[in-house]
Design a protein around this nucleic acid. Structure first.
Length: 571
RNA sequence: CGGGGUGUAGCGCAGCCUGGUAGCGCAUCGGCUUUGGGAGCCGAGAGUCGGAGGUUCGAAUCCUCUCGCCCCGACCA
């Protein structure tokens, strides 16, 4: 491709709105341009990268035995009403009416459509197992789109759906996808980690997320430094707290804590370690308010709270609402004498002589103990684990905390959709069986951003070979020098004929501009034709990574020498 | 959805407080000189000042409403 004939609008300055590296570089390198909040046009260079990711995904899916289809982006409401998701799915679902005033949505996912297809077309167990996938534009009306392509509203996704007769079949389909995903992310040159994930309100047996490790990642993942345990924050379990020894229970005492609101203030005031305080959090649920208890230094995980209460979601009310429910300001909220249902974190089971709010403005209780001073509540996993805690799985390792970008998710759906929508076949006995489903997503466009987050330096992008828009950027230093032009043209043609993807920078720009842009665009190799070295009969080959810089003589041996480097395995 | 910020030429910004009809840098176009890490000089084009309404002789500037974009927020007792 010729630079001067291609729209590659590089920016010298950083776009002010872009917060993360990938967003900045995608704009600066001319890969994308914004159209509205969370929606982008892919320009020629960006599209090439997107297609690279697509191709890798497609190959590995095909190799894993999945069949590619393409489903409609626009879906009728009836299907969603049938699965029950029309009312359940929130505002993320973009809904609209067609000219006949029939309700539609722009598909954020395709369980309903594929289930409808399979129930119509697959009748016999002999047609199973089956796995259908598509690579398609999805739209989710995110609360807050941000970070450019990373969390856009419109994005390119690969979604796959497996259908099996029984659980064992699903397990096998799931494993096949899991393995395919590992190959896909490896081929994309990404450092990633598969983690156990919360299955949330959808239920189901197991689920793994694939995260690209990056500081800018929006998700927190927890892993053990000894064993292979890894989970996202919503799922990560803490090791059980040991029973507290000693301190024979002393009498509960009520103490004035005027003006002390936060846990830290109260702890300081009472001269107690924060760990000896119990914080009481009021959450709102469809079934009414619930009081959640955590150790003073812990933080609540909302997903865990929702799971513990067996609800799709819980919300934290604002101060006024909370005070209304509790009958007391938030700083003095506590479980003793509370009429609200109480759920405490596992960790509090063995806590003795703790302090908590007295349910009376400006008062706290000291030396509180379960059973003696208040009923033993139900216990559940409510809190976020923290780095450095012992691993619950192996017991010897310590938990580590990383930031991750979720690029893939595999999920055993079970019969949630197949049951609701009647996806059944006849088994070998001739009786009807409801199929069990799995679903498997990959954020194709997000991978492009994630790859940049992991592969860049101060000067720009450093594409992994497999994703680079071009393997080589050929810089023609002076397009007015006929000798240089002839040499560059010949190289351009012969490299292309040899199957190398080349971007020929034939712009009439100064050398500095071309060098800067080459760094920014980040193709793995740069070949310079012109200037001093050309006068000596040489061209210069450099790697973007900086580990290669050599002069090669122009002539018969040049092309083979170039091809050798291009095809070598060094990244 | 709440809170904050911001909207002036393609991009980055100044001007607004204190009303008098728009400017700077980069980019673009033309010319000359330059030519190995984002060149210099000269000249040119380009802006409904996000939109609507109001105040005023006069509004980018003051007031009201509205829209877009960006950031923070369900973290906490």
């Amino acid at each position: 491709m010729r630079f001067h004939k291609t729209l590659i609008p590089t920016l010298r300055e950083d776009p002010v709105d872009a917060q993360v590296v990938s967003h900045r570089l995608m704009l600066r390198a001319g890969l994308i341009r914004p159209l509205g909040s969370g929606i982008y046009t892919w320009l020629p260079l960006g599209l090439r990268v997107l297609r690279k990711v697509e191709a890798i995904v497609r190959q590995e899916m095909d190799n894993a035995g999945a069949q590619e289809v393409l489903m409609p982006a626009v879906q009728p409401a009836e299907l969603w009403q049938e699965s029950g998701r029309w009312d359940f799915y929130g505002k993320e679902l973009l809904r609209f009416l067609d000219r006949h005033e029939r309700a539609c949505c722009f598909g954020p996912t395709h369980e309903e459509v594929i289930s409808d297809l399979v129930r119509r077309e697959i009748r016999s167990y002999r047609q199973l197992p089956a796995n259908f996938y598509q690579i398609q534009t999805k739209f989710r009306d995110e609360i807050r789109p941000r970070f450019g392509i990373m969390r856009g509203r419109e994005f390119l996704m690969k979604d796959a759906y497996s259908f099996d007769l029984d659980q064992a079949g699903l397990d096998a389909s799931y494993q096949a996808m899991f393995a395919a995903y590992q190959r896909i992310f490896q081929r994309c040159g990404l450092a990633f980690r598969a983690v156990e994930a919360d299955t949330g309100s959808i239920g189901g047996a197991s689920s793994h997320e694939f995260h690209v490790l990056a500081d800018s990642g929006e998700d927190v993942i927890i892993s053990c430094d000894q064993c292979d345990y890894a989970a996202n924050l919503e799922k990560a379990v803490a090791a059980e707290a040991l029973p507290q020894e000693g301190d024979p229970a002393v009498v509960m005492e009520k103490i004035a804590t005027p003006g002390q609101k936060s846990i830290e203030e109260v702890a300081r005031f009472l001269k107690l370690p924060v760990q000896q305080l119990v914080k009481s959090l009021l959450v709102e649920t469809p079934a009414g308010p619930v009081l959640l208890l955590l150790r003073g230094d812990r933080s609540l995980n909302m997903v865990k709270a929702a799971n513990a209460l067996n609800l799709p979601q819980v919300t934290i009310p604002d101060a006024d609402r909370a005070a209304y429910w509790a009958g007391v300001g938030m700083g003095s909220l506590g479980p003793v004498g509370s009429r609200l249902p109480v759920v405490a974190d596992h960790e509090l089971r063995h806590l003795r002589n703790f302090a908590c709010g007295a349910n009376e403005e400006g008062w706290h209780l000291l030396n509180v103990n379960w059973q003696r001073d208040l009923p033993v509540p139900s216990f559940a996993d409510l809190r976020n684990v923290t780095a450095g805690e012992p691993c619950a799985r192996c017991g010897t390792g310590r938990l580590q905390r990383h930031q991750g970008i979720e690029v893939g998710h595999v999920f055993k759906l079970g019969d949630k959709y197949s049951k609701a929508m009647g996806v059944k076949v006849l088994d070998s006995q001739g009786s009807e069986q409801t199929l069990v489903m799995g679903c498997y997503g990959i954020g194709v466009s997000r991978i492009v951003a994630a790859a940049i987050e992991q592969n860049h330096d101060a000067n720009g992008i450093r594409w992994p070979r497999s994703l680079a828009p071009f393997s080589l950027q050929l810089i023609l230093l002076n397009p007015r020098d006929s000798g240089e032009v002839a040499a560059a043209e010949e190289l351009y043609q012969s490299l292309r004929a040899a199957g190398v993807e080349v971007l020929l920078d034939d712009r009439d720009e100064r050398a500095g501009v071309k060098f800067k842009d080459a760094d920014l665009l980040g193709c793995p190799l740069r070949l310079l034709v012109g200037g001093r070295s050309f006068k000596e009969g040489m061209v210069e080959l450099q790697s973007r990574a900086g580990d290669l810089s050599q002069k090669l003589p122009v002539g018969e041996s040049l092309l083979p020498a170039l091809l050798a480097v291009i095809h070598s395995s060094t990244p």
